[in-house]
Design a protein around this nucleic acid. Structure first.
Length: 293
DNA sequence: TTCCGTCAAGTCGAT
DNA sequence: ATCGACTTGACGGAA
């Protein structure tokens, strides 16, 4: 396992060419137990291959794709299917626990706990329940966090944060795994820290560069308690690109900038580059002369 | 085999 | 009004 001044690396969901993918799914109109099991099997198979690849690269963290069990939180997904799936997952967890790799998740943009719409919040909670259940069933400990964003600003950040906190108060189970990440437009690291949330704050370096703020590093780490923080790093794409778009590679300069701020602390860093494992390979190659691992 | 319209879900700014 | 960005383009029918 490669650790650069306390920092372990990892990628997420799939390989850059998507040939290995934990996010396989199908059309909702084709939803059936058979289709779910078939897709889950492919996702499990690729998950193992991606963990093997992570080991080979020296990675210590991997983000599992949210579609691992397609449509698991959808209303048309029958509850009794979960029993059958649970058996399969428990069997798989025996293989999984042999890997010294931290597993975390990051559900989609549809999870908005700060929304003023009750329907959106209840759908979000169902989606999070699925994520928590999956991680629990796979035997993953409390280091298996589930990352969300604060969401939109609606009629104001203050009101949105208030609603978010209320949802946490009314659903205490969320505190077991939920963590919240700064975004590139609305909620900066300082916004999240000053919200005084009862959950850890994920620092995303790229988002922070686009939506900067002053914050206390000590406070940021304090939010994680005894859990090793999961942070994110990505780079701007080369050439013309839209705001917030992630690059195929991650630049050495961005990593060194991150290291300059956080080096020496124990952190699991997910490289959010479109090139996935290719971007990690290249980064390690770039860094080799400096760190010699 | 490749192409391309379409896909469960939210929210925002750019166009 | 539509599109594309985010946590990931992939599915599936047509040609």
């Amino acid at each position: 396992m490669i650790e650069i001044r306390g920092i372990r690396l990892g990628f997420f969901c799939s390989t850059g060419d998507s040939k290995l993918n934990t996010n396989r799914k199908f059309r909702l109109s084709n939803l059936s137990l058979e289709k779910v099991m078939e897709t889950l099997e492919s996702n499990i198979k690729d998950f193992i291959a991606l963990l093997d690849l992570s080991l080979k690269l020296g990675c210590g963290i991997f983000r599992l794709g949210s579609n691992f069990i397609p449509f698991a939180s959808h209303r048309n997904f029958k509850r009794e299917w979960l029993k059958i799936i649970e058996e399969r997952l428990k069997e798989f967890s025996k293989i999984l626990r042999k890997y010294p790799i931290r597993i975390t998740m990051h559900p989609g943009q549809f999870v908005v706990l700060s929304s003023p719409k009750q329907e959106v919040v209840s759908n979000s909670l169902r989606e999070l329940e699925y994520h928590f259940w999956l991680l629990d069933t796979l035997g993953i400990g409390k280091e298996g966090v589930v990352v969300v964003h604060m969401g939109g600003v609606f009629e104001g950040k203050k009101e949105s944060i208030k609603r978010f906190k209320k949802v946490l108060r009314n659903n205490a189970w969320l505190l077991q795994r939920l963590v919240v990440e700064n975004d590139e437009r609305y909620y900066s690291v300082a916004d999240l820290l000053s919200a005084d949330l009862p959950i850890p704050i994920v620092y995303d370096h790229y988002h922070h560069s686009l939506n900067p703020s002053n914050f206390s590093i000590e406070e940021l780490f304090k939010s994680w308690g005894s859990i090793v923080p999961e942070f994110h790093l990505s780079s701007k794409p080369d050439g013309k690109h839209t705001f917030g778009e992630h690059g195929y590679w991650v630049n050495q300069e961005d990593f060194l900038d991150f290291l300059n701020t956080f080096g020496g602390k124990r952190i699991d860093l997910i490289i959010e580059a479109k090139g996935k494992e290719k971007a990690i390979e290249k980064l390690l190659l770039d860094l080799k002369p400096k760190f010699g691992f």
